[in-house]
Design a protein around this nucleic acid. Structure first.
Length: 234
DNA sequence: GCGACAG
DNA sequence: ATCTTGTCGC
């Protein structure tokens, strides 16, 4: 059940005005409740750029999840996909710049993850449709937005201890959670992407936290998407 | 009109 | 996001 005409994948060129209208049109389709199959595999997605921004590089890393007393997070597959950059970065319209490449990477994935963590906002967005939400809608898969900084909304100061959190609010509604993933390190902005409740989103991010600021799925994808010595680099 | 502003 | 060396810490 494609959300948009497949043709748009190739002609994905919207004016800021049309892009905003499309976000408003799609936002109501985001499912803020849990509709997740038993989680066996979790994917992390992130986008990087090469050639001074001319090339967009999407990276997806799939980890096997085993819910034992000492949780297992093992990499089982990873994909790097490149394509010419289509649009410039515009605050609030990031999804139109990054989603096409992310879809290209997912199309080349053999494993089908039950949960996806995206580097960026979910519904913690001015029109409640960040990159994690759009990708989730398009793939019809549960997604969680894990951003490294704030796009919109306000929040109280977060405790300094690892695990401390406080709600992120905007226009009278709670749109996410600000989480201190590591002591004395800038907090993470966790929000529902699609088909995952806020509480569940936070639980999964905490579960996937190892010793770094970012949860494993996003950390590994981030590394694959940004490292200068990434596979295929000249 | 003046700031704020994911990656 | 990306451009960049060393340096502090586990």
């Amino acid at each position: 059940m494609p959300v948009l005409p497949p043709k748009m994948l190739h002609d994905w060129n919207l004016s800021p005005k049309d892009a905003i209208a499309l976000q408003k049109q799609l936002a109501p389709r985001v499912e803020p409740g849990d509709r997740i199959a038993p989680v066996r595999h979790i994917a992390g997605v992130d986008i990087g750029f090469e050639d001074g921004g001319a090339t967009t590089r999407a990276a997806v890393v799939v980890l096997r999840w085993e819910p034992t007393s000492a949780p297992v997070l093992e990499v089982v597959e990873q994909v790097v996909y490149r394509e010419p950059t289509r649009m410039p970065y515009v605050p609030g319209l990031l999804s139109f710049r990054e989603t096409p490449a992310a879809l290209g990477a997912f199309a080349r994935l053999a494993t089908v993850p039950e949960l996806v963590m995206v580097d960026g906002q979910g519904i913690a967005h001015p029109r409640r449709l960040g990159v994690a939400s759009l990708l989730g809608l398009w793939l019809d898969v549960p997604t969680i937005g894990v951003a490294k900084s704030r796009l919109c909304g306000r929040h109280a100061d977060v405790g300094e201890a690892r695990g401390d959190s406080t709600p992120l609010e905007d226009k009278g509604e709670t749109i996410g959670t600000v989480l201190r993933s590591r002591t004395r390190v800038k907090p993470l902005y966790v929000s529902t992407g699609h088909r995952v409740s806020q509480a569940t989103a936070l639980e999964w991010v905490v579960r996937c936290l190892h010793r770094t600021k970012l949860p494993e799925p996003t950390r590994l994808a981030d590394r694959l998407a940004s490292r200068r010595d990434a596979p295929g680099r000249r």
